[in-house]
Computed example of a mutant assay.
Amino acid sequence: MSISDDFKEKLKAGKIVDALTLALSEAIELEITTWVSSNKSYAQTSAEAEQPHADCRMRTRLNIVDGDIENEIGSQFIGNGLYTELRQFHLDQVQEGRQIIQQNLENLQQLFSVLTKTMNQLPQESRQLESGNPVLPPSSQDNLP
């Protein structure tokens, strides 16, 4: 099952906290890859065919939790390589990715504000993680013995 399908199933089951936890765990990293495909295939398997050859790709990974940035630049994008004109395109995509991350963080902040305000209105079952541990301490409205 895909992450998206799993998220939807948790929402349908009323497990809002589990759905949000899943979404957040998948949202910490952004990967941007620029690559030039070729008619020549270096791949031995179909899985390898989906991956660009290392010298024909640029890849940047941004981890918003750790603040890590990893860059991989193939040899064809540097010096007198065939694809040096695509470097600026890739840099533009990375900048756009940073803007997307900023927007996503602002959206998450708004989401958490709404979630905090409405959490006490949810049934007790919806406030539990699958492990059975409550996400928030019980409120005075929970009528616990």
Rank of each mutant, 00 (worst) to 15 (best):
E85I: 10
A27E: 11
H53P: 11
S139H: 10
I3G: 08
R98V: 01
E29W: 01
G74V: 09
L22T: 06
S126E: 03
T60V: 10
L91Y: 15
M58F: 02
L11N: 00
I73C: 02
N39G: 15
I16E: 00
N133A: 07
L22K: 04
N71Y: 15
P145N: 07
S75F: 05
S4K: 10
G79K: 06
P52E: 02
L105W: 02
L108Y: 09
L111T: 09
Q124E: 15
A43R: 09
I73Y: 08
Q124K: 15
N120R: 11
A43D: 07
N63Q: 10
L144Q: 11
T60F: 03
V135Q: 03
P52N: 00
V65K: 09
Q44D: 08
S41F: 08
D18A: 07
L20P: 03
Q102G: 13
T60A: 04
T21Y: 15
I28M: 11
A54G: 06
Q103D: 12
N120Y: 08
A49I: 10
S4P: 09
S37N: 06
Q44T: 12
E106L: 10
A43N: 06
A54E: 14
G132N: 07
K8Y: 05
I28Y: 14
S37C: 02
Q51L: 12
G74H: 08
K8S: 07
Q95R: 14
S75P: 00
D142P: 07
W35K: 02
A47I: 13
Q99I: 07
Q121F: 15
I100P: 10
A19D: 03
M1N: 14
L20F: 13
R127T: 01
D68N: 10
F89W: 06
V135T: 07
V36H: 04
N107A: 13
G97Q: 04
Q99P: 03
I28L: 12
Q93P: 01
